[in-house]
Amino acid sequence: MDLFIDIITGLCFFIGSLSIIIGACGLIKLPDVFSRIHAAGMIDTGGTAFFLLGMILQTGWSLITVKLILIGVFVFFTSPVTSHVTANLARKKNLMPVGKKIGKLL
């Protein structure tokens, strides 16, 4: 049973590592601010969720689990707010995203 939990934890860590490395590559590779926000969102959601899931599996059920869940809640509440503030401010400073525009923008 211990070995089984270890294997699942390793799998979670592997997916999380892959997620943050692909996100960091995207942060370098993509062309403008609005596209890079998607890569940052990938680091914030995919990476954090899988790493925290792995650590929760590793601890079992105690006070530490509650703290891990609290970290997850904080990150999941604050990440979209910072993304939106950055994007909104970039639009206010008249940066237009590359790519096509559909319809009339606000």
Binding site: A24, L27, V33, R36, A40, G47, T48, F51, I71, T86
Partner: peptide, 13 residues
């Protein structure tokens, strides 16, 4: 700013 925020998330992990 976006990159610093992502770096902060990675540091938390």
């Amino acid at each position: 700013v976006l990159a610093v925020n992502s770096l902060g998330t990675i540091i938390v992990i």
